[in-house]
Amino acid sequence: MSHDPHTSGRTGRTGRAVRAAVAVEKNAPVSLETVIVPDPGPGEARVEVQACGVCHTDLHYRQGGIGDDFPYLLGHEAAGVVEAVGPGTEGLEPGDFVVLNWRAVCGRCRACARGRPWYCFDTANAARPMTLADGTPLSPALGIGAFAEATLVAAGQCTKVDPAADPAAAGLLGCGVMAGLGAAVNTGGVGRGDTVAVIGCGGVGAAAVAGARLAGAARIIAVDIDPRKLEWAAALGATDTVNAREQAPVAAIRERTGGFGADVVIDAVGRPETFRQAFYARDLAGTAVLVGVPTPEMRTELELLDVFARGGAVKSSWYGDCLPSRDFPMLIDLYLQGRLDLDAFVSERIALDDVEEAFERMGKGSVLRSVVVR
């Protein structure tokens, strides 16, 4: 049973009343609302949120770019402490420090049955809706909704990690850092001595640089149009930087790899032109990875003969093809050992009231991540 329950008469169930940042309607500024977080049901957990990163995905929700199921409870890159668990929940108890994930694997679908749970086709979210004080159901961003003092998730969305980690840094594994790092390590299969290029060095691209360095890449070429982002990439391990306003990316990458192209090229932008650059900037039999998220109207065209003749692989990366139960604890351990600088991604710590201003700074490219902290 949960502790510190409050009663929401209009919802007819007990729950905790919290402050939260909500996108009430398309393109409207985020507003702070009172939200009722229900007591957890079977297989669910209520988590007291200690920190949550401000991700581009949250802005896409606010803009209506992901769906029209307003109002949205925003926030998903989060870490916190389990406050209560529902009946039948195993391996998780109040007091556990957790990073939240949005792909709680089922263990039963055809992907899981084939030993590929990172592709799980039936991931879980909490069944009980969080609501506004008047009973209006909320749609939690990526099934999490963590721009709040507490949130309700499926127990499988809680990954226990070492509580010595700073929540502001640890929570970023919940989306952007894991997406970029995993695009290099898991999807791209970067190995010792490889050459790697990363196109787009915002939060996800910078994490791909860090992942390539962690994997032992010999040369890491960061490409962007913003000198600040190139500086961030260099600090995280890029050996070369290319300002795409001054040099054509494909030619610049080839120039730095003996004329061959990189073994792995990661597109962290997700536009037709950058995807084409990634395809042609790789070596013969090299790998191109798309981790930047396109919009629905985008189209791309490649010469089919080049697809055949160049060999290799063209992949998309879902959440860095991560398995949270495997990857999050390992990466937190590397962070605590000083081998993975998650602190470098935390540009500023802000209050819940400052989310809208954080979206503005994100749009200007002046931060890697703003993080809401308690």
Results as ranks from 00 to 15, higher is better:
56 H>C: 01
56 H>D: 00
57 T>P: 01
58 D>M: 08
60 H>L: 10
61 Y>R: 07
62 R>F: 07
62 R>A: 14
63 Q>V: 05
64 G>C: 08
64 G>E: 08
64 G>S: 09
65 G>Y: 11
66 I>Y: 00
67 G>F: 06
67 G>N: 14
69 D>A: 15
69 D>N: 14
69 D>M: 13
71 P>R: 07
72 Y>N: 11
73 L>F: 07
74 L>G: 07
77 E>L: 09
77 E>Y: 05
84 A>H: 02
84 A>P: 04
87 P>A: 15
88 G>T: 10
88 G>M: 11
90 E>K: 13
90 E>Q: 13
92 L>A: 06
93 E>A: 15
94 P>T: 01
95 G>W: 04
96 D>H: 10
97 F>G: 07
97 F>Q: 01
97 F>P: 06
98 V>G: 03
98 V>K: 02
98 V>L: 01
98 V>Y: 03
99 V>Q: 03
99 V>C: 09
100 L>Y: 00
100 L>W: 00
100 L>D: 02
103 R>C: 10
103 R>Q: 14
105 V>F: 13
105 V>A: 15
106 C>H: 10
106 C>E: 12
106 C>A: 09
107 G>C: 04
108 R>P: 00
108 R>G: 03
109 C>W: 08
109 C>G: 09
110 R>D: 15
111 A>N: 15
111 A>F: 14
115 G>H: 03
116 R>Y: 13
116 R>H: 15
118 W>E: 15
119 Y>I: 10
121 F>H: 13
124 A>K: 14
125 N>L: 01
125 N>D: 13
126 A>Q: 02
127 A>P: 01
127 A>D: 11
127 A>K: 13
127 A>N: 02
129 P>Y: 02
130 M>V: 11
131 T>E: 06
132 L>T: 00
134 D>F: 03
134 D>W: 06
136 T>P: 09
136 T>Q: 13
136 T>F: 06
137 P>V: 04
138 L>C: 08
138 L>D: 03
139 S>C: 13
140 P>C: 05
140 P>Y: 02
141 A>S: 14
141 A>M: 07
141 A>E: 12
143 G>C: 10
144 I>R: 02
145 G>Q: 03
146 A>N: 09
147 F>G: 02
